[in-house]
């Protein structure tokens, strides 16, 4: 090379990669959300060992008791231990939240990628999604329960169906902006195949908004599950879930406030934790925001 090249001055920072510790350090809310969710998950897994009793055991002699040393969160109208029902109920909420978030995101991602990238399919796919979106979720769930046996799976399916179009719309919108980016054009120019363009260039840039969306779906699915149980159209009433505990407690709210307050508080804290985690991850996953501003 004949000409000497002036190297532009730039301090040599060590290469940065995504690290959990760094993300948590930047966003303390992630840590709070993560800790709460880990505690809840531990509670759900270890439910039988956490000084619980059989959540279905009826003790008519101790009906509608307030919190005490024996019944930490009191008892319900047939004398079941509310603490045990809440601990076991976390299994339902977490399962529904996680399953709905994963299934809806996975289906929505595939459909959205296709719709955003294969233009001639777009109109057709999006009209189907509009159709799905126009079905009220609660109504669909009630109809599904009427048609089949109420079960955890049915509840999950009923919540997934109306959530899918939301993910599809998000992914499609992201893909439509990304495909016009010069770096996607550059990928085509260097001979990157259609599949690899999706995998290397479109997907990684769509992941951050998708993770955030997934946490919101997770949170809203837990609430929807509680609403469905509350309406009697969700998890079978004998299964302890936070929604069921609240549904059964609502008639006694004036004499036993804890029947609504305790499961309600658990639901609120869980949903909050999921949302905190989502917001923090959105910032932490973006290499451009990784530097402290």
């Amino acid at each position: 090379m004949v000409t000497t090249i002036l190297v532009e001055e730039e301090p040599d920072a060590p290469p940065r990669r995504w690290s959990l510790r760094e993300t948590v350090g930047r966003h303390p809310t992630v840590a709070i959300g993560l800790v709460i969710l880990l505690l809840l998950a531990a509670m759900a897994i270890a439910a039988p060992y956490l000084w619980t009793v059989d959540p279905l055991r009826i003790s008519p002699a101790f009906r509608l008791r307030g919190p005490s040393e024996r019944f930490w969160f009191g008892t319900d109208h047939v004398g079941r231990d509310v603490y045990s029902r809440i601990v076991y109920g976390s299994r339902i909420s977490l399962q529904v939240g996680l399953a709905v978030a994963v299934i809806a995101t996975a289906i929505g991602l595939v459909v959205g990628l296709v719709s955003g990238y294969v233009r001639w399919l777009d109109g057709f796919v999006m009209r189907i999604m509009d159709g799905l979106m126009s079905i009220p979720g609660i109504l669909l769930a009630i109809a599904l329960m009427a048609l089949t046996r109420p079960s955890l799976e049915t509840v999950i399916i009923a919540i997934v169906i109306p959530e899918v179009p939301r993910v599809v719309r998000l992914v499609r919108a992201v893909v439509l902006t990304l495909r016009e980016q010069p770096f996607v054009e550059a990928a085509e120019a260097v001979g990157t195949s259609f599949f690899n363009t999706l995998r290397r260039h479109i997907l990684p840039n769509a992941v951050a908004p998708l993770i955030v969306q997934a946490t919101y779906i997770c949170a809203s699915a837990m609430i929807t599950e509680a609403i469905l149980s509350f309406l009697g159209a969700g998890i079978p009433p004998e299964v302890p879930s936070w929604g069921n505990v609240m549904a059964e407690g609502r008639q006694y709210v004036l004499v036993a406030f804890h029947l609504i307050a305790v499961p309600g508080a658990f639901l609120t804290v869980t949903v909050l934790a999921v949302n905190l985690l989502g917001d923090g991850l959105r910032d932490g996953l973006d290499p451009r925001l990784r530097r402290r501003l």
Binding site: P182, F183, P204
Partner: peptide, 17 residues
Amino acid sequence: MQVIFQDPYASLNPRMT
């Protein structure tokens, strides 16, 4: 045949090294 783009910011994928 290759190409060099106008916008050096947008023509590089921000998530790749």
